[in-house]
């Protein structure tokens, strides 16, 4: 029993220390946001990597998420509520939940893991030390552009995912239920609320930031060569995904 309690205590302390270290890193990085213009080239590069290069994946996931949402919603409405409300039901689900969460989870796999692997490899091959020796702070040069781009680009990707998601939902509704576009989109329009869209984008903002922050933190704390880099990659993905879902729950309580 004593062992269990002491083990629990150690784990809790380790968790608190690590969470503290993440916030300390974030505090140091945030100072460099004032130098955003000076570092615009680095930020632009990361916006391309995190945002633009993720577009095909986000489009793919968005279309199929919307299509599945449409099929599931139609199944639940069947016999109880008119299919005329299918557009409203799927669009609300896409705006507030599916768009931001699925986009963020996909980005956690593609971008969060890649940030951790890239920075982790730089750590174990002394490239981070080399940056420091050249009087360049890795937090400014590597972390700030990635974290800023994470916060900024994921909401944009979410808007894209929302749009193609609704298109995917309509496509399925048209193919399976022969639903006319004016009925589907009329219902989307009738129940459209900017608040829903913004709530989803606020979630996406925090999910994107969380993914980039975790990727950077895990990368900077990589040790042990190639094996360590592999472990960091997995750790970044698992931690980011878990925190996205935890954030989703907390933000849902606050926003709705």
């Amino acid at each position: 029993m004593t062992n269990i309690v002491s083990s629990l205590g150690r784990t809790t302390i380790a968790f608190i220390l690590e969470a503290g270290a993440v916030f300390i890193m974030l505090g140091k990085v945030s100072r460099y946001l004032l130098q955003l213009w000076k570092n615009r080239r680095l930020v632009y590069e990361q916006m391309m990597v995190i945002g633009v290069q993720s577009v095909p994946l986000v489009l793919f996931v968005g279309v199929f998420a919307g299509a599945v949402a449409s099929i599931q919603t139609a199944y639940q409405l069947k016999g109880y509520i008119s299919y005329n409300y299918l557009g409203a039901a799927t669009s609300v689900a896409i705006f507030i939940e599916l768009g931001p969460v699925l986009t963020a989870l996909v980005i956690a796999g593609r971008v969060g893991a890649s940030i951790a692997a890239e920075i982790g490899t730089m750590k174990v091959t002394e490239q981070l030390d080399a940056l420091e020796s050249l009087a360049i702070d890795p937090l400014r040069y590597l972390a700030m552009p990635r974290i800023f781009s994470g916060f900024f680009m994921i909401p944009i990707l979410t808007i894209l995912a929302d749009f193609v998601g609704i298109m995917g939902a309509y496509l399925v509704a048209y193919i399976n239920l022969d639903l006319a576009p004016e009925i589907f989109f009329g219902s989307v329009k009738e129940f459209f609320s900017l608040l829903n869209v913004f709530s989803g984008l606020i979630k996406a903002f925090f999910f994107g930031g969380t993914t980039a922050i975790i990727g950077c933190y895990v990368g900077f704390n990589t040790s042990g060569g190639a094996e360590g880099v592999g472990q960091s990659t997995i750790r970044a993905f698992v931690l980011s995904s878990a925190l996205i879902l935890l954030n989703d729950y907390l933000l849902s309580i606050i926003l709705f």
Binding site: T121, E126, Q127, D129, A130, E132, A135, Y141
Partner: peptide
């Protein structure tokens, strides 16, 4: 640190940059 040059054991060149970008980095920054 700007008064120091450091040659690392494995050279620690930045993989994502060309030779000229590696060497030019301190000047650019």
């Amino acid at each position: 640190r700007k008064q120091f040059g450091f040659l690392f054991q494995g050279a620690a060149l930045f993989d994502s940059m060309s030779v000229s970008e590696n060497i030019a980095l301190p000047l650019v920054e």
